[in-house]
Amino acid sequence: MAADLLWDDVRELFDPDLMGSLPDACVPDTSMADWQALLDLVVARGWRFEYSEGERVLPLPTAAAILARKPDSECPALRVWPSPDMLMIFRFGAAKEIDFDLSLREIQDQERLDEFCGFLREVGRHLGKPVLMASEMGKPAEHPVLGFLPETDRVVVIDPPPGMVNL
């Protein structure tokens, strides 16, 4: 299978100095069922994961239980390692959007880019929704720079930042 993106064409999008070291990613327009589908995918794929509320590591509950927590409770997080050295951190803010962070320092060559694109593709295909990434200061649903788009079934550059060429 051909790579969705070529490292030499998109390396600026993975430059921590330009994009921030922890950009945001999201799946917009989701529901509780989409969150549960994500949890089911993580388990079914056998990705290493850790669920926590504050500093407490806990067994993975259902999406309904996580999203029904009291507003003043500790913020839940799901850390997922789709590959041994690549971490995605999902934040359970609201059912309407699946938010997660990633470290650009973990994606610095074609092999890692392919792993990242594979992760976005798996999540997007499983949910039948786009999976978008923005700079650390941007909002993925409003100003994405790249993402998996169901209509193309690929990860593509969406809106390159000013100064980027050859995209």
Rank of each mutant, 00 (worst) to 15 (best):
D101P: 05
Q36K: 07
D17W: 09
F92L: 14
I98S: 03
L104M: 15
C117R: 01
P76N: 06
E111K: 15
A64D: 14
E111A: 15
R45P: 06
F92Q: 01
F100D: 06
V27Q: 02
P82G: 03
F119A: 08
L102N: 09
L113N: 10
E111C: 09
E97T: 02
D114C: 12
S21T: 12
P84E: 11
M86D: 06
I89E: 10
S103Q: 06
V80R: 07
S83D: 13
L78F: 07
P28L: 11
A77G: 07
K70Q: 13
R48N: 09
E55T: 05
A94P: 00
E106T: 02
R56C: 01
I89K: 12
F119V: 04
L102R: 07
K96W: 14
P71G: 10
S103M: 12
G46H: 03
G20A: 00
L120F: 12
E106Q: 13
S73Q: 12
I98T: 01
E55D: 15
G46R: 05
S83W: 14
S103H: 10
I66V: 15
M88Y: 14
M86P: 00
D24Q: 15
R79G: 13
Q108T: 08
P23R: 04
F116S: 08
M32Y: 05
C75M: 15
L39W: 04
R105Y: 14
V57P: 00
R79I: 04
T30R: 10
L18W: 03
R79P: 05
C117G: 10
R48M: 07
R79K: 14
F90N: 00
A68Q: 13
E97D: 09
D109W: 10
E50G: 02
P23I: 11
L22Q: 13
D99A: 12
Q36N: 03
F119Q: 00
D72F: 10
E50C: 10
P71E: 11
W81Q: 00
G54T: 02
R45G: 00
P61M: 00
D72I: 07
A63M: 12
E97R: 14
